[in-house]
Nucleic acid binder design. Structure first.
Lengths: 202, 202
DNA sequence: GAGAGACTGGACCGTTCTGTCCAGTACGGG
DNA sequence: CCCGTACTGGACAGAACGGTCCAGTCTCTC
């Protein structure tokens, strides 16, 4: 397991390493990113890294946790209020916008999941938990909408949320492959339309 | 570029190398798979590999082509007739079934796309072409349904096909991460339901 | 049966990889 | 001021990496 720094200086060192690793991995993948490159980018040395992490896999898990925190906290205002059609639409459009303006579209968590899911069981578990926590925000919003009567009584928030996340992840993958945000936009339009078909008002 | 074998023996050697590479890569990723491991699995030697391929990237592109051919030819009977609700439903169920019985769910093409899309431009192009060709089968089927009057006149086959593929790829990713086919089933049910909402009969 | 070219075996090279080690410096608590 | 602990720098090791090279074998053609 990771050793947590106990001083401010140590915390900054650890942070620089994790953030540098996260950036390099986003561009070159886990296996394509060497420890030495991470350290050079972070301006740190080997012993600093191995002071805080037992091995590379341990560092990767810290990268997963960091990227997840960043996504959640960046979208926190929207994520916590996914209980209206407008909010959901706005959240989906957020992704399309980010994907269009990014040179490298693609979800950091999704990319990590694709590479690690059947190679590192601990990381796979972390990633599954990330997805579940993430879906939780949408499930919570849809549940409130259902209680409020905006969503049809037979609608199943969990199933709907899973379907939306699949469209999001798949759309991001297609967008990354095409280097074009269009597939993501189309996929999320369809997902939203599917959600809307459970609108109580019809 | 790849040098094509001109003898039967050469063809078999090349095939063994590509197939071994495809299998190892499916389990360990592109960067995680070493040339030496591929050769050991294929029972071949370095010079055989470099006789047919200029470098590792060249081999990877052959793997992409092979996996694509395998998927297309395996599903050819279904893919060529995606012009009825039953056929589409059956094709989607095929994926759920495959995913459930596989130890490692996940689309080989999708995994490669995720890893290579922003690292190897040539491979990215190949993968985008694979997705496009693949989508083409569904677009063709939906277009026939539209002409026949099974699909509403305002339905857009291309957009619908893209949305279905995003659900498929995203569902496969979630299924792989959860080690459970349920997210894929849910995602494809939603995609089918979305398609059905464009049914002419309502 | 000889020559040409396709194919093969595997030693070898330089680089890069993860991870270890130890000698050192910074720093808070007494 | 001093000592223990946290932290740091970088040399080093051993293995694995992609790729080159050449001497050899097979096989087809004439």
């Amino acid at each position: 397991m990771s050793r947590e720094p106990s001083t401010e200086r140590g915390r900054r060192s650890r942070d620089r390493i994790v953030e540098s690793a996260a950036e390099l991995i986003a561009g070159r993948g886990v296996e394509g990113t060497g420890i030495d490159h991470v350290l050079a980018a972070a301006g740190a040395s080997k012993s600093q890294l191995y002071h805080y992490f037992t091995d590379k896999d341990d560092l990767i898990r810290a990268v997963i946790a960091r990227r997840f925190d960043q996504i959640i906290s960046a979208q926190a205002p929207v994520l916590s209020h996914l209980d209206s059609w407008e909010a959901i639409r706005q959240w989906l459009d957020l992704w399309v916008g980010m994907s269009a303006e990014m040179g490298h579209p693609g979800c950091p968590i999704g990319t990590l999941a694709s590479e690690l899911a059947n190679r590192d069981e601990a990381a796979r578990g972390d990633l599954a938990a990330c997805f579940a926590a993430w879906e939780g925000y949408l499930i919570a919003g849809l549940t409130r909408m259902k209680q409020r009567g905006d969503l049809a009584p037979h609608a199943q928030p969990r199933q709907l949320a899973i379907a939306v996340f699949a469209s999001l992840q798949g759309g991001l993958l297609l967008a990354k492959t095409d280097k074009d945000a269009e597939p993501l936009r189309v996929a999320l339009d369809a997902a939203y339309s599917h959600l809307r078909s459970f609108s109580a008002s019809g």
